[in-house]
Computed example of a mutant assay.
Amino acid sequence: MGRPLRADAARNRRLIIDAARELYAEEGIDVTLDDVARRAGVGVGTVYRRFANKEELIDGVFQQNFADMAAASEASLANPDPWDALVTFAEFACSRMSVNRGLKDVLNGTDDGCEQIASQRSIVEPAVEEIFRRAQDAGMLRADAVATDFFGLIFMVGALTEFVQPVNPTVWRRYLSVMLDGLRAEGKHRDPLPLPPLSPDELHEAKQLLKSRKR
């Protein structure tokens, strides 16, 4: 076990983690360690003393998110309703991504250099496979769906959320429902879509904001 950090070193580590968490949530994980240092109010050398590289910092920031994801996947396996288990876990993952742009990046990226994230992902991915198997065995999920479809689905919802977040931050729930309906077995009941769709004005505003971000 390593020696405890000095009080000033521990304080700097907290500042760096908090700054990175804010920046990653706002802008995604493409921000640099220089950006993190500026937000934290420390020198970039201090960042490198606490974290050897960007991957180590990402691991430190997102390990709790993945631990929560692993716990939610295991809770879904305990749900006696196989379809509700799938829906509940999808809603959990998408709700977390809806307020954290960086989480979408990490969920759909690799775990190179991120040991804690890799450890938690090793729990999540088999759980999703079992969630899908249970729903198929119950006749609720189409037979040709596979667990990797789940990660494709939440990536699409994450991309949509990033597009509409400034104008309608909760409408992603409507489009998640549309996508989940596409996974239902033939002839199964479909619930009414939650929430109204984007209005023409909201769609226009979202397009304008996207255009301005690309300049």
Rank of each mutant, 00 (worst) to 15 (best):
Ala90Trp: 00
Phe92Gly: 01
Phe155Arg: 14
Ser98Glu: 03
Asp68Phe: 08
Asn100Lys: 04
Gly139Cys: 04
Phe150Met: 09
Ala25Asn: 04
Arg121Glu: 11
Gln120Ala: 13
Asp8Trp: 06
Glu130Ile: 07
Phe51Pro: 01
Pro82Ser: 02
Ala70Met: 03
Pro126Thr: 07
Phe51Met: 00
Lys207Ser: 15
Arg13Leu: 10
Leu33Cys: 03
Asp181Gly: 11
Phe89Leu: 06
Lys211Asp: 12
Arg96Asn: 03
Asn168Arg: 13
Ser199Leu: 11
Arg121Ala: 08
Gln208Lys: 15
Arg121His: 09
Ala9Asn: 10
Leu103Arg: 00
Leu210Lys: 10
Lys214Val: 14
Cys94Tyr: 01
Ala40Arg: 02
Leu183His: 06
Glu202Arg: 08
Thr32His: 05
Ala159Cys: 13
Ala25Phe: 04
Trp172Phe: 11
Gly102Glu: 05
Phe89Tyr: 11
Gly45Pro: 05
Ser76His: 00
Met179Ser: 13
Leu198Glu: 07
Asp68Lys: 12
Leu15Met: 09
Pro126Ser: 08
Ala90Gln: 03
Ser199Thr: 15
Glu130Val: 08
Asp105His: 02
Arg38Pro: 07
Ser212Met: 12
Arg142Gln: 08
Pro200Val: 05
Glu27Cys: 11
Val146Arg: 12
Pro126His: 06
Ala9Leu: 08
Ala143Arg: 13
Arg50Gly: 10
Leu183Val: 05
Val164His: 01
Pro4Ile: 05
Glu202Met: 10
Val146Tyr: 13
Lys54Cys: 03
Val99Tyr: 09
Phe92Met: 01
Ala90Leu: 11
His189Ser: 11
Phe66Asp: 00
Arg21Trp: 06
Leu57Ala: 03
Pro200Gln: 07
Arg184Ile: 01
Glu55Ile: 09
Glu186Gly: 08
Ala7Ser: 13
Asn65Arg: 14
Lys104Arg: 15
Val157Pro: 03
Val42His: 00
Met156Thr: 15
Val178His: 11
Glu91Trp: 09
